[in-house]
Amino acid sequence: MTDARTVFDRHLPDQLPTPQPATAYAPSNIALSKYWGKRDKALNLPLNSSLSISLRDWGSTTRISPSSTDEVWFQDRLLPADDPFADKVLRFANRFRRDQMMPLKIETSNTIPTAAGLASSASGFAALTMALVQAFQLDLPDDTVSMFARLGSGSATRSLWHGFARWERGHANDGTDSFARPLEVRWPAFRIAIIPVDTGPKSHSSRDGMNHTVATSPLFGAWPAQAESDCTAIQNAVQDQNFQTLGQLAEANALAMHATMLAARPALSYLKPESWQVLETLWTARHEGLAAFATMDAGANVKLILEASSAADVKAIFPQSRLIAPFDPL
């Protein structure tokens, strides 16, 4: 059985070069076609492919430099060695270093507004992966870098690029064919609106919720095949820049994912009454002509997808929303 150490050993030199200072930025991303369920938990291998859009300047920057001892800094604050975030970062760095003594100073900062209630693990592990690759002067193909990022956080595999990216589920047991690639699509009018509902910690982590749903939901059996079909249909809509089809598919895909959770035993609901109020308001507005659609991850917050022509109307209906233009220059 393949483990993460074997994957890294296969792609890295026996002896790493002396690390050099390196900096990398990665945007966070929102899945338009959801990833929910793993075929291998240790390797973060998904049961279905997924497709996402990046969040431009909402993301993470990681700086790495040689040091006399390991240090992890977050938002300009040195973290104690027993801090869970610091431990997670160093354990991931150790996958590169393996048994080699190469102390590092790792500094991470996020530009994701706290009030937006978005997780930063995808952009954080993507930035960390790219910074480590640069620091150790590794000449690796993007597929391999994306695969490495997946071993830190599943969704990180899609956060190496700006724009749309598709993460392939793959079929190999060792995960060598499960990575993301960017779509060669520029859609300047595409917009995302983040509507915060609950920015506090979740009662169930995404990982726990996913495992519970897979293990107990009678609706989950139909999810992987439907989600795979959705992903391909959503990719086609993106490539055709067919907003109506894309919106309908993305919203249905998100609701289907949440349906599998609601059918779990006991039921699991990340959506709050306020989330449903946002959806009801959206559906009413759409009936009256608004061209916008919703997507929701394992959390209470609602994200809308729309085009620039609808931005003013969305802002008027949801004044608390934060608009992002993924294809605007940084």
Rank of each mutant, 00 (worst) to 15 (best):
L151A: 11
R265S: 12
L12E: 05
L262W: 11
I234Y: 01
L55D: 04
T114F: 12
R77L: 14
D57L: 01
V238W: 01
P141V: 11
I30E: 00
S275R: 05
L151E: 10
W283H: 13
L43M: 11
W73H: 14
G221T: 10
L140A: 00
S205Y: 07
F318G: 08
A93D: 11
K38L: 08
T295N: 03
W276K: 08
D313Q: 15
P84I: 13
L282D: 00
T69L: 15
W283E: 13
D82G: 09
Q320S: 13
N301I: 04
R77P: 09
D99G: 09
P27A: 10
A172K: 14
D198S: 13
P196L: 06
M101Y: 13
L132D: 04
V278W: 05
A86P: 14
L282Y: 00
G117P: 07
T18S: 11
A156Y: 09
P13E: 03
H287E: 15
R166C: 06
T6A: 14
A292G: 07
Y25L: 05
A294P: 03
P66I: 11
F74K: 08
T6P: 00
L12R: 06
A254G: 12
D177R: 13
A294Q: 00
A259W: 02
D328R: 01
E288V: 05
